[in-house]
Structure formats: structure tokens, C-alpha cells
Design a protein around this nucleic acid. Structure first.
Length: 810
RNA sequence: GCUCGGGUGGCGAAAUUGGCAGACGCAGCGGACUUAAAAUCCGCAGGGGCUCACGCCCCGUGGGGGUUCGAUCCCCUCCCCGAGCACCA
């Protein structure tokens, strides 16, 4: 099956196994991290979850895309550190183990061995001395250490909270892992449960996480997703006196307060009982019971028509001094702001819908140009304008009204400006088996105690029955010898925390570990970290644009504040790769359109496969996998192989035809631009064009062939090494330098000028590169084809773009 | 609904970001080599029309409008696809 194309003498499997072996012997891909010979460049790709199926084409695409960049940087003279590892803890692995009836502790090492084989085969420039496996105690020892640092700094805390519970996975999910009310993993509707959970105070960092985004070299979409997730709102908290006490609301539009005609509380709001009048008691209780029965998620995803009930109570609008009715409704959420709002039906859609349904008064307080205080409102109006019906603020523009009203309210002691974030604290507890145990010991006398650092790691005990159950308690609680442990403070019997931590914690710091894997007494060495971090370029999937990147940034920030790091942003440059689809659809086992990369590598070779994947389109776009297109890149390599054979021949002349010289330099320029912008498809196209030009010109100077091999090396590394050797070089092609282009040589000595008449191309002229305007125009006017279209008319206007075109307007 | 991407031949795509639209590659067609096929090499190739022919004309980057000597690129408007967020006050 492998090789029908015998003519060229190129045999991928021989070339690739030879160079895999050679690289290992020479240590080609293992830079000296303490004495890098040149500028260090940390090239990171998102580490894979080692599934039983092995690497799929999407992984290959992503890793190759990143590897090509690393190899390019190396050719630019950097010392490149390119590690890879395995993100092997977590529900994903555990569920698969349950399904197969195999213990994850047995399954995962098998999968990892298979992944490693595949990763080596595809030709990644990986430094295998520095790899991580998050399930290895020598790794998760430091994940636990990390937890302790946050705990000691008061950034980790335990609280009873209504949390998202997945009844299928039988565990708590972070808010981020719930999509539209469903578990993102198994699509089961999520329930609310009140459990004691560990949280990280990521909300303390919301402002910094948001502000720093501006300075990051990340793609706009990723930055947007992060901003969106953190969700900053600028507004004010305002106090409304009521019989039950001061009702505080949050609003982003304090300037509309004169139009607040009623208030709405979340059904969980603590003031409801005190505000409810005897007459309304029955209705209120019924509504609350109904609302609380429907869990938070269902409330969010349910239909949007408004429901609610009047408490019978009133509060005073501090701006107008008028009593306004207080309602409860489930469209107000207890977890955001204060769980209470002032309703301004004239200028908020939801309040408008509510007021319309329950016949509550609607007052206009903003008038756009052409409107007045009495123009009727047929819908909520949230445009700009000036304030009306707003007492002392009538006529103030909406641009400055929020600020003015806020300070007026503040002076009255009725409120203050307030910035709010939508980000919630990060719940890291998981009631599961396959994760790092959270290093806490509970003692009757001393309370929760951190496990002393010298006792780390708290090793995950190998228990037979690792299945989760409905109790809300981790299976670890069933392992009695492990569970009971002496209190580190008083020595009396205590018990271990049985929750394990979220997989996202494992991956929130792995990039810090890579350069320091040989240090067993510290998570990351100061010197190594200083030399290699932050990460120069990080390439990964957009599915991690929010969670993983946000958590990694947060952990880095905390470690900086605690004095362990000198930087607070871990990834200077991040680019998301696209997705590989097959026949327009996402690959999945159920669709039966999964591409197994091993088969393609067997058939075409890793070099062809890599080149094909990168030729598909820009890295960020992904692409549609088509079997029949792989032959193009393979043919290109074959022709290149033959060219190298010719160039090795003594008959190769030194002369470079002038036409070829410009094309040569142009190809170098385009290849360089393609590499820098991760549009590798254009870089490969430039090399193909150059090869075509070489054929057409019938000249193949040695220097040109050498440079082509270097430029091809990131895509087809084994192939390039072999060609390089055949050209007589004794060292690795990756010790060569990426070729420079000479801008002066980009332009050919003559240029073709397009002649347009009235903007339409009518003729072409070949003139000297440095011909001046008068000469070109004169030549254009006597040109036969041009004359025909001018039809004797005198041009009214003559446009000349040097080196490009002439446009004659008649 | 809001935010961010996109929309170019049969297909993947390119276009020095206002200057010859479709480079490069796949698939296709014609030819050479071959007993034949595969592989390889040479040539053609956006669509439509006129011409015996060399050639020539018109249309064309989701639709419509605008700016400009000139628009795939800038502006307005609408449609469609993808991703994220979504009763966040």
C-alpha cells in the first residue's frame, strides 16, 4: 500500500525512521535549558488528554501547527524549548475507565504510551526530558502545594453553596461547565444541590484579569471571550428605604432613577417575609415555592415571559420620595448584584414587559431628539437623549447624567458608584476519584488543617471501587485507612478531605512545570523560570479560550503576588487553531467520519501528512479533510527530491537567470510572511511556485536548493534533514538559518504596466523598472490596443501608479 | 437579542489591504511515454456569448446602494453561515 511512486527514489518510512533515531542520538531536540546557545523561545501547545483512541487528526493539526512555528523560530536562531505532556486526570478519563471496566490507573499509562509513540512518529520537536503527566504523584504533589499556597493566602475557602450537580456524572460542575442548563460533558440537565465546596477567589482578580487583556498579543475573538466572561458593569448601588429595612439595588443606569416605578426582588431575597402583607401572604408563598422548586438553571433557560407577584409592601424611591410597590419575580437573580432591582419600565425591556403584564405605571425619563416628556412610550427606549421628568436633572444629557445622578445620590447618603463583575469564584471541589486529593485534614478540636508541605503528596489511594455515587461524597471516603489520619496540629484522629480538585487546576500551571521537571524539591526552579517564562507563543484550541486560559492567568497572578513569580501574564502570544472537519461535519465516532492519522502516515509518510495539513488553509481556520488532496503535497516533495538529486550533480551551473533571481527572493519574502502570520498555506505555496520557476528556467543553483530545503524543514523535517545531508551538509538542517531576502532584488528589471481605459484593462506594456511617468504615459498613448479604445478621444485624466498601471479617462 | 469572526471557480484557497480577481494545490479535460494501465511529463481550464479561425465582447468576489479614475478591500443597508454570551438590572 505504501509506495507506488518509485521513480524518485523517495521512501518516507526509511527517511523518517532514520532521522527519528538520529535526532535521539544527537539530542537535536533537547536544548540545554541552563545554557541556551541563543535567545530562549518557549513554544507551547496545549497538552492533550490521552484518550484510548489515540491522537486524532485534530490533535495532529494543532501540534503540527505549533511545531512548525517552533521549528521556524529555531531556524531564526532561537533556542527553542518545545515540550509536551498529558492532561490525564479528570472526569473524561474516569468515565471512560468506568465504561470499559478498567481502573484508570491501569488505562491511562497504556494510553500515554500510545500517545507518545504517535507524537514521536509525527515528527514533533519535543523535548522528551521535560514532559509532564498530571496523574504522576511527582506532578500532583505540586498541584496540591499550589492549593496550599492559595489556602494560606486566604484565596481558597470552603462554603456551603448551591452548586451545579450533574446526576449522571454524580459530581459538582463549575458554572463554566454548565451549558444552557446541561452538563457540558454528558448533556444531562443540571440540578442544584447545597454542598460544602472549595472555592478559589478568582473574583478578587476580576479587575486585573480584565485590564491586562488589553496588553496581550492574543486574537480578538479570544480576548473578547475573556472580557465577556469576566463581564464588568459600571453602575451604582442605591438604597430604597422600606419597612423591612434599607433595600439596596444595583443599577447600571442610575440616571433613570426618576422613572423607577416599582421594585423587584429575587424569590430568595431575605426581605420578602418582612415586606409581605397578610393579604398577599398566600400568593407570595406559593410563588416562592414554585420558583425555588424550579432550579436556577431551569429559570435561566426557561421561556422568557414574565411572572411575578406583588408583596403588598412599598419602598421609597430616594430620588422622588414616592412610595413604590415591591414585587418578586424570578427574572431577578439572587446571585448577581444585590438580588433586587429598581424597575424602570420606560427604559428597560424586561421591566417594560413586566409593567405591561401587571399594569404598573411607565414613566418616560429620557427624550431623544424630537421627543418630549410627554411623548408616549410604546416600547422600552434605551437610546441616548436628555433627561425629562427627572426633577433637578431635566435637560441633562444621558452622556453625563449617570455620573451626576450618582454623586447627587451619594451626597444624600442614598447610594454610591459600584463596579460589578459577572465572574464567580472558581469551585474546584469534585466528588470523584480520579484527581489530586485536596490536601486538607479535618480535626474535631483544631478545625480544618492544611497538610504540612513535607507530607505532600497526598497520594491518591488505589481503590477498587472508584465509581461515584449519589451521596455527594467522593468515593475516597470509602477507603477507611486513607480517610482516617492524625491531625497535623494536635495529633488526635482526624479525617481527610475526600474531594479531589478540578482538572482545570492541573492544567492551570503545567507550563510552569515543564522547564523544571527534574527538580523534585520545588515546583519550578527560579532560574529556569526566569530564563524561559513567560511563554513566548501558545497555540491551542478555541474551546479553551475562556476557562483554561482564565484559570492559568489567575494562578499565575496569585503566584506572582505570593512572590513565586516575577510576571503575571503567562502567555505573551496566544493563537487559536481552527478545527479539522470531514466532509463539512465535525468528526465523531457516531458519524463514522473519524480520520485515523496512523493510516495516513503509513500511506504517505509523516512529512507529507504534515505538509498537507498545513497547506489546507490558515492555521486559525482549520479545514476540511479530503483524502484525494494529500497527493499534491506528496508530489511536491517528490519533485523536490529530484531537484536535490540534480543539484548534487556537477553539471549544475552557478549562474542565476535574472528572472529567477527576483522570483527566488519574492518566494523567501512570502514564505517568511506566511510563517510569521501562521498562514503556512501561503508559505508552502510560495515554495511550490519557486520550484515551478526553477523548472521553467531550467536552472537550479546550489544556494537556491539549500535555501528551499531550509524553508521546507518546518513542514517536512525528516525529509529536509535527508535532503540536507544529500546536499553534503554534515550538521542538522535545524542548525542552519532561515534565509534572508533582499528587498532590492524583489523587483525585476522590467515591469509590466497595465493600461486601463475608463478603469477597464485594455492593454499591457513592458517598461523598464525605473521608467518615469512621462515615458510610460507616452508609450501608453501610442499603444495599438489602447488607441483603439480611446477611439481618437483625448484623455481628460491620466492616472499613473508607478510600476503598476496607467488609467486613461475619456 | 448582544459581541466577535466569515461569505471569492466543481473543491481547499490566494490577492503586496484601493490597482491585471482566482496564485498554489485537488479534482477535471487534451496530449506524450506505454502492448495496456499506474506513475511521470507537457498543455488547457471562472461563467456566458460571437468567430471557420487568430481573436474579440459581456458578466463575475452573498444581495442592493454609495464614495472613487479604479472596490474582493472603504461607507450605508439587507441576507446567510460559524463561534461565544444570553432575563447580569
Amino acid at each position: 500500500m505504501s509506495d507506488e511512486r518509485e521513480n524518485s527514489g523517495y521512501h518516507p518510512e526509511q527517511v523518517e525512521s532514520k532521522w527519528r533515531e538520529r535526532w535521539k542520538q544527537r539530542g537535536t531536540n533537547a536544548p540545554d535549558l541552563d545554557r541556551p546557545g541563543s535567545e530562549p523561545f518557549y513554544n507551547l501547545m496545549m497538552f492533550p488528554y490521552p484518550s484510548a483512541e489515540g491522537l486524532h487528526v485534530g490533535n495532529m493539526f494543532a501540534f503540527t501547527g505549533s511545531d512548525v512555528f517552533g521549528r521556524y523560530q529555531r531556524l531564526r536562531g532561537k533556542t527553542v524549548f518545545e515540550p509536551i505532556g498529558y492532561d490525564a486526570f479528570g472526569i473524561h478519563s474516569e468515565n471512560f475507565a468506568i465504561k470499559m471496566g478498567i481502573h484508570p490507573g491501569e488505562l491511562i499509562p497504556r494510553n500515554i504510551a500510545n500517545f507518545r509513540r504517535q507524537l514521536e512518529r509525527v515528527g514533533g520537536m519535543f523535548d522528551w526530558r521535560h514532559t509532564v503527566d498530571t496523574t504522576d504523584p511527582s506532578y500532583y504533589k505540586w498541584t496540591q502545594w499550589l492549593f496550599l499556597q492559595l489556602y494560606k493566602a486566604g484565596k481558597a475557602y470552603k462554603k456551603k453553596a448551591a452548586v451545579n450537580w450533574c446526576p449522571t456524572d454524580k459530581t459538582v460542575l463549575a458554572n463554566e461547565q454548565v451549558e444552557g442548563g446541561l452538563c457540558e460533558r454528558c448533556k444531562t440537565p443540571v440540578e442544584q444541590r447545597v454542598l460544602e465546596q472549595w472555592f478559589f477567589k478568582i473574583t478578587d482578580y476580576a479587575g486585573r484579569l480584565l485590564d491586562n487583556i488589553d496588553g496581550l498579543d492574543w486574537s480578538d475573538s479570544t480576548r473578547g471571550a475573556q472580557r465577556n466572561w469576566i463581564g464588568r458593569s459600571e453602575g451604582a448601588e442605591v438604597d430604597f428605604p422600606s419597612p423591612a429595612g434599607t433595600l439596596r439595588v444595583y443599577t447600571t443606569r442610575p440616571d433613570t432613577i426618576f422613572g423607577a416605578t416599582f421594585m423587584v426582588l429575587a424569590p430568595e431575597h431575605p426581605f420578602i417575609d418582612a415586606l409581605t402583607t397578610p393579604v398577599q401572604r398566600g400568593a407570595v408563598d406559593a410563588y416562592r415555592a414554585e420558583a425555588l422548586k424550579t432550579d436556577l438553571v431551569a429559570r435561566r433557560t426557561g421561556e422568557k415571559s414574565k411572572t411575578g407577584v406583588f408583596t403588598g409592601g412599598f419602598a421609597i424611591n430616594p430620588a422622588t420620595g414616592t412610595p413604590i410597590p415591591v414585587w418578586i419575580a424570578d427574572y431577578v437573580l439572587m446571585e448577581y448584584g444585590t438580588g433586587a432591582i429598581m424597575a424602570v419600565p420606560g427604559h428597560d425591556e424586561r421591566d417594560f414587559a413586566f409593567a405591561t403584564k401587571f399594569a404598573l405605571p411607565i414613566i418616560r425619563v429620557i427624550a431623544a431628539p424630537g421627543e418630549s416628556a410627554s411623548t408616549p412610550l410604546t416600547e422600552a427606549h434605551h437610546g441616548h437623549g436628555v433627561l425629562v421628568n427627572s426633577g433637578p436633572f431635566d435637560g441633562v444629557s444621558t452622556a453625563e447624567a449617570p455620573r451626576k445622578v450618582t454623586s447627587w445620590l451619594k451626597a444624600k447618603g442614598a447610594g454610591e458608584g459600584k463596579t460589578l463583575y459577572r465572574l464567580h469564584d472558581w469551585c474546584i471541589s469534585r466528588q470523584r476519584y480520579w484527581g489530586p486529593p485536596i490536601p486538607i485534614i479535618y480535626c474535631e478540636a483544631c478545625g480544618p488543617q492544611p497538610v504540612p508541605e513535607q507530607d505532600l503528596p497526598v497520594v491518591l489511594p488505589p481503590i477498587e471501587d472508584f465509581r461515584p455515587d449519589d451521596s455527594g461524597v467522593s468515593p475516597l471516603a470509602r477507603h477507611r485507612e486513607w480517610y482516617h489520619v492524625a491531625c497535623p496540629k494536635c495529633g488526635k484522629q482526624g479525617r481527610r478531605e475526600t474531594d479531589v480538585s478540578d482538572t482545570f487546576l492541573d492544567s492551570a500551571w503545567y507550563f510552569l512545570r515543564y522547564p523544571s521537571t527534574e527538580f523534585t524539591d520545588r515546583p519550578f526552579d527560579k532560574e529556569r523560570t526566569k530564563r524561559w517564562l513567560p511563554v513566548a507563543t501558545y497555540i491551542g484550541g478555541n474551546e479553551h479560550a475562556v476557562l483554561h486560559l482564565l484559570y492559568a492567568r489567575f494562578i499565575t497572578m496569585v503566584l506572582k503576588d505570593l512572590g513565586h513569580l516575577e510576571f503575571e501574564e503567562p502567555f505573551l502570544r496566544f493563537r487559536a487553531h481552527g478545527m479539522i472537519v470531514k466532509d463539512g461535519a465535525k468528526m465523531s465516532k457516531s458519524r463514522g467520519n473519524v480520520v485515523i492519522p496512523d493510516e495516513y502516515i503509513n500511506k504517505w509518510g509523516a512529512d507529507t501528512f504534515r505538509t498537507y495539513l498545513m497547506f489546507l488553509g490558515p492555521l486559525g481556520d482549520g479545514g476540511d479533510f479530503r483524502d484525494d488532496s494529500v497527493s499534491g503535497p506528496r508530489r511536491f516533495l517528490e519533485r523536490m527530491w529530484l531537484l536535490v538529486g540534480d543539484a548534487g550533480d556537477v553539471s549544475v551551473g552557478p549562474g542565476v537567470p535574472p528572472g529567477l533571481l527576483a522570483k527566488w527572493h519574492r518566494a523567501k519574502q512570502r514564505a517568511t510572511e506566511g510563517m510569521e502570520s501562521l498562514r503556512y498555506n501561503t508559505a508552502i505555496a510560495a515554495l511550490m511556485e519557486l520550484l515551478n520557476a526553477v523548472k521553467d528556467e531550467g536552472a537550479h543553483p546550489r544556494a537556491l536548493v539549500d535555501e528551499m530545503i531550509v524553508m521546507l524543514a518546518p513542514f517536512a523535517p525528516h525529509f529536509a534533514e535527508e535532503c540536507w545531508e544529500r546536499m553534503g551538509h554534515a550538521t542538522s538542517v535545524f542548525d542552519a538559518r532561515w534565509p534572508a531576502f533582499d528587498p532590492a532584488l524583489l523587483i525585476e528589471s522590467t515591469v509590466e504596466i497595465v493600461i486601463q481605459v475608463n478603469g477597464k484593462v485594455r492593454s499591457k506594456l513592458t517598461v523598464a523598472r525605473d521608467a518615469d511617468e512621462a515615458t510610460v504615459l507616452a508609450a501608453a498613448l501610442v499603444d495599438g490596443a489602447t488607441k483603439k479604445f480611446l477611439a481618437g478621444r483625448e484623455p481628460k485624466k491620466r492616472i499613473y501608479v508607478p510600476g503598476r498601471l496607467v488609467n486613461l479617462v475619456v
